[in-house]
Nucleic acid binder design. Sequence first.
DNA 1: GCGCTTCAGTAACAATTGTTAGTTGAGCAG
DNA 2: CTGCTCAACTAACAATTGTTACTGAAGCGC
Lengths: 249, 249
Amino acid sequence: MSQAHADALDQLVRKVNVVTRLTESEERALRALPLIAKTFAAGQDFVREHDQPDHCALIVRGWASRYKTTSVGRRQILSLHFPGEIPDLQSLLLSTMDHSLAALTELAVAFIPHAAVRAAIQAEPHLAVPLWRLTLIDAALYREWLMVMGRLNAVQHMGHLFCELQMRLEAVGLASRETGFDFPITQTELGDAVGMSPVHVNRTIQDMRRLDLITWNQGRLLIHNFEDLADRSDFDPTYLHQSPSIGAF
Amino acid sequence: MSQAHADALDQLVRKVNVVTRLTESEERALRALPLIAKTFAAGQDFVREHDQPDHCALIVRGWASRYKTTSVGRRQILSLHFPGEIPDLQSLLLSTMDHSLAALTELAVAFIPHAAVRAAIQAEPHLAVPLWRLTLIDAALYREWLMVMGRLNAVQHMGHLFCELQMRLEAVGLASRETGFDFPITQTELGDAVGMSPVHVNRTIQDMRRLDLITWNQGRLLIHNFEDLADRSDFDPTYLHQSPSIGAF
DNA sequence: GCGCTTCAGTAACAATTGTTAGTTGAGCAG
DNA sequence: CTGCTCAACTAACAATTGTTACTGAAGCGC
């Protein structure tokens, strides 16, 4: 196995361990998965709505977005994904994609054949538990986004998103409280994620700067006072389910 | 086992069969689950945010809502649930509830101990597949709601919700194209589901009546022309994943 | 019948958000 | 350097949505 493959699997194991304590044999089964490396340019789709994939995509490097498009071409981003995550794990059980996945940045992906995942679960049935759990946490994030989109104002909405990104990226070592994190998306893309027009995204960012809540430039975002922003934005990290406490089924 | 229990399990088996073809032994395992019957008055919570439940709730009769509340007490309904569904199935793997479940109408529930579900899966490992699939379909609904909330206008949003309810209720025999379905919620509750104020819900319903799209009175809703409303509302039922085609894992 | 509560519905006004149409500056290919 | 593209940003205005404060009708306990 190449070094890149080993790195990709390290990230997956690390990510899964954030939410479930893996047993040794489960970890071994994960590390034995075959990977097919591929890269995509920013903006490219790597899975499309209505596809019937026969593999899942493990993100190795870069950011990805999950999105749907209305009949008149308006895009809604449903979630953002980072290294170590498998955004289309659900395709293992739902044959037809109901959304698309796209590269937000230059993106390195490792494809894992469904057959290999199924075989790993057959051989080690308990492996299904952490994987199921990953898909349940995705669902918990959608629920939170729904609440935020339906009931918070524009500044709170963005503040909530920034807090979520800070915590999720910290968990995989891609953010710190002192230096923030790389935030490689445009204001238009951010609008697609929060359901606002680009103009209103800009207004809201200006408001947040006037309130001295954040610094965002050169593709890097820093939250000035995490507790304060979390408080204003109704951000309670319970929904991230980042405690591996219950590994047992 | 009482007749009520047998009925509840019939509904569950029927519901699961809408999305996955069960094998005989899987169906037997489901039907062997122990149930604890309970009823709730309209408005009562039956699972609360931050609870750590040791059982799941199978809805037997009535409607339930899944919701979150902001720190200033604004409610956002995240999904609506009907007989045959287990809205808190995810609590089997996520120990802490990140939302609450409430009775929208008089509600009959059958609680199933987590231990019994775990034992059934241990005995019949393939049973995990249809259950996992149910939680994935919940997630697919959240995704669609996100797209609808972020990118459709008020009439489309409500139209989309009505189309979804029509199809989901048809699938369990609680709706028909000719007579519509019981819709036992207030305009304020509907607003909590779509993220609008009650006044704007009323405005939007009046618009839909003027456009001759629906009839809604005496707690019953009828869509005048399903194809037309679905078309206007960008409703594409793919996301409901109502095809049991792939049962195999 | 008589209050009381709840819900649908309305009007007037305020606040938020979207649309259109720009300017500016940075990066980059040639 | 020059022109091109893209992203951030802005102003003016329009459209949508929320807020407040009502009315009227239905159900219900007494």
